[in-house]
């Protein structure tokens, strides 16, 4: 991962935003701060899992293996892994970004990373709720088209991002 200072700048901007909004709407801003702490509490276990996976990946899986599973020569196996990995991954997408960038740096195809991120639109634990609100027919077509959409986006992104 390349080192840059955009994170510190962004953190400064957000802190300033809280300060200004805190003066204008103190109650709402304190609620926002509590909401943020709730999000932080929720993502910590997933973040730990992601960084544990990153350490394992860096230690035991070499670039040759990555290339064979999700690199240029991965073929249909790579698409299958990206789509199912995306569907099965939990938590907010941004928690997975460092791991995905790590894989890119080790030779994973850009198209597969794009497909993985889009396939995350299918949330298996929330399917019963989707069925309750919108019915089986909507849920099945939603799932089918998101998988197709993730695959097509991966192919298009791979062409557009070819180095």
């Amino acid at each position: 991962m390349k080192k840059n200072h955009s994170g510190l700048v962004m953190l400064g901007v957000v802190a300033l935003l809280y300060l200004v909004l805190g003066i204008l709407h103190p109650d709402k801003t304190v609620s926002a701060l509590w909401a943020s702490l709730g999000v932080l509490k929720m993502i910590i276990p997933i973040l730990l899992l992601v960084f544990f996976l990153m350490a394992l990946l860096n230690a035991y899986i070499d670039e040759k293996a990555i290339s064979s599973y999700i690199g240029e020569e991965s073929g249909i196996k790579g698409w299958f892994l990206a789509l199912f990995g995306g569907i099965l991954s939990h938590g907010p997408g941004y928690v997975w970004y460092p791991l995905l960038q790590n894989l890119r740096e080790q030779g994973a195809k850009d198209g597969l990373i794009v497909a993985f991120i889009y396939a995350r639109a299918i949330k298996i634990p929330w399917i019963p709720l989707m069925v309750t609100y919108f019915g089986w027919s909507f849920t099945l077509f939603y799932t089918f088209w998101v998988v197709v959409g993730a695959w097509v986006q991966g192919i298009v992104a791979q062409r557009l991002l070819r180095k």
């Binding site: 994170g7 957000v14 926002a32 701060l33 943020s36 230690a59 460092p98």
Partner: peptide, 28 residues
Amino acid sequence: AATGTLKSLRMIAPMLLAIIGLIGLFKI
């Protein structure tokens, strides 16, 4: 590998905290 991973975590921490702060504001 663990050292490299901790370095990555340290690098993304400010941005991650900033985004979480923004999420709180948007939620409210």
